[in-house]
Structures are given as C-alpha cells and as structure tokens.
Nucleic acid binder design. Structure first.
Lengths: 370, 370
DNA sequence: CCACACGGCGACAACGTTGTCAAGTGGTCG
DNA sequence: CGACCACTTGACAACGTTGTCGCCGTGTGG
C-alpha cells in the first residue's frame, strides 16, 4: 500500500503536495489541531494513508527541544526485576505515544553518568527514570529545569524516588521469626554498596534490639568485593556452635543461592524469608516465603510520577513508597527447634500468630517464562 | 563543572564562540575529522569540557537521515529470555556509541507493525532487531534500503535471522528418551502460533517415526487460545491408560509449570527435558535437564549481524544458527520404568549412552537475580 | 618570480518540522 | 452598506547539525 516516491522517505512536503495543501496544514492535521476544515482534514489523512507518511521524530524534537522518548537507566536488563520494571514503564509509555530508550549502568558511576547525559543532553528525552548508582548526580542539574527525573528502587534526595518500604517489610519478616521463637536469625548477604540492603539491615538490627536478642556479627554474611559464595556461607552459618535457625535473605539472588544450598544438604527445617520474589519460590518444598517487591507496581508508579511531573513541576521532591506483601509459603512459618529459654510470647508450630499482613495470591505466574 | 550559559543548553554555537572558531570547526573536532590544527582542536576540546557540551542527536539524525539508536522489538521485556537478549544487544551497542530503543509487540501483529514503523520511519533508527510476530512485514520494504533489519528467535524469509536449531536440538533430546527405552513420550505444550515450537514438534515426530514408535495425539498437550492449565494437563498425561513416562517440555514456561505440577504430586520418576533453561532447573531434585538456548549468544549474534549489515549490504539474507547445549541434570537421564518390549539398544539407568553433546557448566548463574 | 597545490578554516544551505504572523473568505452586527 | 469577527489557510523563519564550496596563507616546483 504505501508507495515511496523516488527513493526518499515521504515527508510532510510530499503529503502536502499530494493533498494540495500547504505543509503547515498537514502539520495541523498530524497534531490534531482544531482549526482545520473537516473536508481538508479528510483529504490530508487520505494522502497520509496512501503515502505511508510517518512524522520524523528527529525534526520534531529538534524543533521543540524535547523528544518523544523517555530514558530509562537501570543496573542491567539481565536482572529480571529490572526487566519487568522496564516492561511496565514501556507499556504505559506506549499509551502516551512515548518510546523508551534503555541503557544500563552496570552499577558503574561513570557509566551511569555517561548514559544519563547521553539521554538528557544528547537525545533530549522527555523524561528520565533511573536506578541511582552514585550518591549524587550533580551533572543532571542543568537539565532538570527542562527534563523531569525520577529515581527508582534506590532513593535519592532531591529526586522523586519510588521505593519499597525496605525497613518496614524487613521488620515484619524478622519479627515473625522472633515471634516463632527464633533466637539465631541470620542476615544473609549484606552488601554495603546498596542503600536498600542497608535499610533492611537496620530493620533487622532494630527488631533484635527490641526483642532483647544479642546481635552476633557471625550471623551476618557479607558480600565483599562483590562476591560471596552462598553455598559455603550457608554451611558456615549452619555449622556454628549455636547455628542459625532462621535466615533472612536480603535479596532474591542470595535467596536463590541459599535455597539451592539448603536443598543440596536436604535441610528442610530451617526457617527462611527472602526479600524479593523469585520464580521457583513456590515450587520447592517448603515453599520459600518472600517479601514481594512487585516490579510492575514500581515501574508503574515511576512512570505515572514522571508523567505527572511533565504536566506540572510540582513542589518538593519526595519519596513514594510502594507496598510490599509478605507471601507466606511455608519456609517463613517454621518455628524454632526448641523453645530454649522462655522468651517470646507465641511459639506455636503452625502459621505465625503475630505480624504479617494477609496477602493471598501466592500463585501469580511471574518471573521466568518462555 | 559544566556551566550552562543563561538557561539554554549549550549548542555547537556556544562552543564555537567560546573557542573563537567557527561552528564548522567544532563539528570537525566532534566528529574526529582530520583537517584540524592540533592546537585548534585542543582549544575546542577545552571549550567543550568547560561548557559541558553534548551534541544534539536530533539535529544530527535530522541532517544525516539516520540516527544514533537501534530499535529492538520483542514480545515483552517481562520475559527474562528476551530481557537477557536485549541486554546483550545493549551492551554491544554501547561500545559502538549506539543507543537502544526497546518496544514490545506483545505478540500482536498490529502492535508489531506500529512499533516497527515508529522506529524505522519515525525515529529513523540505524537498524532494527525484532522477534517477528506476523508472517510477513511488507510495510518494512520501503525502508530496508536504508535501514538494516535482523530477525531473532523466529526465522523470517527475506531477513537475516538469528535462530537456534530447534529441530536438531529437539531430535537430540527426544532421541535420548528413545535410547533410554521410553515409548510414551509427551510433547508438553504445543502452540501452533509459534513456528519455533512447530519445528520442535516436527523433530519430535521424526524421532518417533524413525524409532518405529506410534504417534499418539493424546500425548500432545496443546495451548488453545493462548492458554493451557499445566497442572491438570500433567495430571491427565500421567493418568492415561498407558501414561507418559517422559516429557519433552517445548518451552521454559511450560517446563516451569510442568516441574511445579510434578513436584506437587512428588513424581520424581518421570523423565523430562525442557527446551529453554530456567533459573531453578538445577536446584530442584532431580535437576531438570534443559536444552540451553543462550539469550546472550543470540543477542550478540544479532547485533553483530546488524553491525555487519551497516557496513556492507551483503548478499542474500540467510539464517544464522546459534548452537544450543543439552544440559544433563538428571531428569533427562531417567530410564523408562520397565523394558517393556525389546526395543532400544541401550537402556541403562545411569547417564545416557547415546546422543547428547558433552556440555558441562551446569552451574552458570543466570536468570533471577536481585 | 609565478603558478599551483594543499592544509586549515569559515560562510551558507539544507535536513523536516512547528511557531508566528498575516492573509483570504464569508458571515454578522450596527 | 461598511466594519468587524471567526474560521481556515499559507509563507516564512527557526531549531542544531553537517555537507558543499570556496577562501586564505604558506610552501614548492618550474
């Protein structure tokens, strides 16, 4: 159907000629402006159809100074959490007629800077959503008057930030362990590079303190220089004089490694709650209880916020907290082996008495596909 | 450091003024052209530094007719396979100074068309990589002279296509079942909408034929109208008069569903091979043997092909086959329950004798993270 | 000493689109 | 009947960059 005259792509001029109007009128039709006679509009639309005309984004954004794409910078698309997040953004962007430019920072501050500048200054995107790496992004300041920016997953002062309640969710989870009589609760995979994980860490510490349980550094596994052998670390924690009886896995990757380690040694008696859901969590026995951090919710919140910022500059940037859910699947409800001292209030065997918001829907299909 | 004069973003003119040269000279420096005096170049570079100048992509691509981004259209980023594929593309693109525009088709032909046209005609991308949905994309023809196009995952005549050897890999897997004495081999989740799955289906059929085994339609699970209840379907296959003893899962999603179903009923005796790896395949017991279809390899091959096409138009488009590996993890090496008739050659219990290329590295961390 | 080549650089147009402004037409009101 | 208004349309400049062409000055060979 579309016929390209000569070898050039059809431009607004070709449409204008074909419809017998001026290019300005074509522009008006394309942009759905009011003041066009219905009959003229029909002629123009017909010409557009016939020629297969598509407006040139480059020229448009050159003229207007800001283009029809939004930029997204995340750690890496290879992480299904971020992939799902971008997917949510892309879906919503489509309904606004916006395209999505993705770039990854690979957790490198220099690359983050390069990518952000390329998007904001080079591509003149209509907005940016990014998962911050460096503590500050001062180089964005000159552009922020024109380009709205939203931070996701990790909070940044000065930016509207979409995050989950790391602290609160962790408190809930660890408190559940305490309520079940656990006194040796491991924090599996602390990584000081991530502020989110540090917030989870302080939730953990606060619950211990409030419960009157001593803090034992031996119960904390740390990622040093970006690496931690989950398997041997799990073995270590279980081989302590007073071994860990409950594990709080601070992120999904650690949770997967931990689950694998426990399964290799057939330990089905250790309690575990993971921060972040993962695909097989409800397949293994016992099912792995997870704090569900829904990437689609986060992505949606981020783009909605960005679109709102495009409309009106809005006031002070603030944090927007996306709710989490504690998916009870079994592993989080395992009670401590022996009541030891007389400590906690409740200490049954079945599902926990205390905390934990309801939240059913354990069987959402998410994660792996294909 | 960067100082924006007034409120405008610095343009080539500002740099030129600051360095005391003409805009053309700045352009020459930015584009690393030869004919510039070293000293002048230094002055210009310094001015660029000071002003924080970043070339405007829109103007550039308007002038040159083709921009600094490549377009990628895939089913959805929520699918970790495609997410990883895009990640590989993005990584390589970065080294070429290209950005990546992602768009999803959601397996809808109309949306595919819209997205592709937006990328090719609207954004004037430097190239397109897409996972084809509709049988044909004739609307791309007018642009193909200017914009190279590569198909991934699913083959399309007329386009360079990057695919895996669906047929061959399936033959290998099913043959392994036959060698182990299985006579009731299920094809789990046929979906006629996907040509890749149809190719796997014909591999399945051919092995049966060559082995002299009858084809039983009852052993084929079909996705109808896009849905299939994996759990009840698995139950059905296991409850047949002559139940299935081996499962070929035609895709990772089905494999996950199937694995979950088998685990719920504690069936550890059924053989299974999945087309497509998934994160927990080596955690469950028995480990799920998989045909590994590496998204990074595929993505890399696709972008390399695209970059090559940019250099030279090249001759006839062809199919490029990316190798797969059969990861032996246990479930694929389970022999048939009773030797039944005297059929196959080998029929031991331990790892298969026949087919299956070596392929170690079962423990690659892929899939879920975070 | 002159013609010419060449390295280095700048003026200007053009890419496709939209904003500004003005012009044309027909109708309405005083 | 004339002035004014609403509505529709078009001419033109401008967005920031690069390609074309030509200019200038210096050196080189005849």
């Amino acid at each position: 159907m579309p016929k390209i005259s000569g070898s050039r792509r059809p431009g607004i001029k070709d449409v204008a000629a074909s419809a017998g109007v001026s290019i300005k009128t074509v522009s008006r039709v394309v942009n759905a402006e009011e003041a066009v006679h219905p009959e003229t509009r029909a002629r123009v639309l017909h010409a557009i159809q016939v020629l297969g005309y598509v407006p040139n984004t480059a020229a448009r954004s050159l003229k207007s100074g800001t283009g029809g794409a939004i930029g997204v910078v995340i750690d890496t698309l290879a992480d299904p959490f971020f992939a799902a997040l971008v997917s949510a953004i892309e879906t919503r962007a489509l309904t606004e007629g916006l395209s999505v430019l993705v770039a990854s920072s690979n957790l490198d501050a220099a690359q983050e800077r390069e990518q952000l500048l390329s998007l904001v200054a080079g591509h003149q995107v209509a907005g940016v959503i990014f998962a911050p790496v460096a503590p500050e992004q001062p180089y964005l300041d000159p552009y922020r008057a024109v380009t709205p920016v939203v931070a996701v997953d990790r909070s940044r002062a000065g930016y509207d930030s979409i995050v989950v309640d790391d602290y609160g969710a962790t408190v809930l989870a660890v408190q559940q362990f305490v309520d079940l009589g656990h006194e040796r609760i491991a924090f599996f995979d602390r990584d000081e590079r991530f502020s989110t994980i540090e917030r989870r860490m302080s939730g953990y510490l606060d619950v211990l303190r409030d419960a009157g349980l001593p803090f034992d550094p031996e119960l904390v596994s740390e990622t040093i220089d970006g690496s931690l052998d989950y398997r041997s670390e799990a073995d270590r924690l279980l081989a302590l004089d007073r071994p860990a009886t409950a594990f709080f896995a601070s992120n999904a990757k650690a949770a997967i490694g931990l689950t694998a380690a426990l399964h290799r040694t057939h330990r089905q008696d250790t309690a575990m709650i993971a921060f972040g859901d993962f695909s097989f969590a409800d397949v293994v026995r016992p099912g792995v209880s997870c704090i569900d951090q829904d990437p689609f919710l986060i992505g949606n919140a981020a783009i909605e916020r960005l679109l709102a910022l495009r409309e009106s500059p809005s006031g002070e940037p603030r944090e927007w907290i996306v709710p989490t859910a504690l998916l009870q699947r079994g592993s989080g409800e395992i009670a401590a082996p022996l009541p030891a001292r007389a400590t906690a209030s409740a200490s049954g065997a079945a599902p926990a008495s205390g905390a934990a918001p309801a939240s059913a829907s354990t069987t959402t299909t998410r994660g792996d596909a294909r």
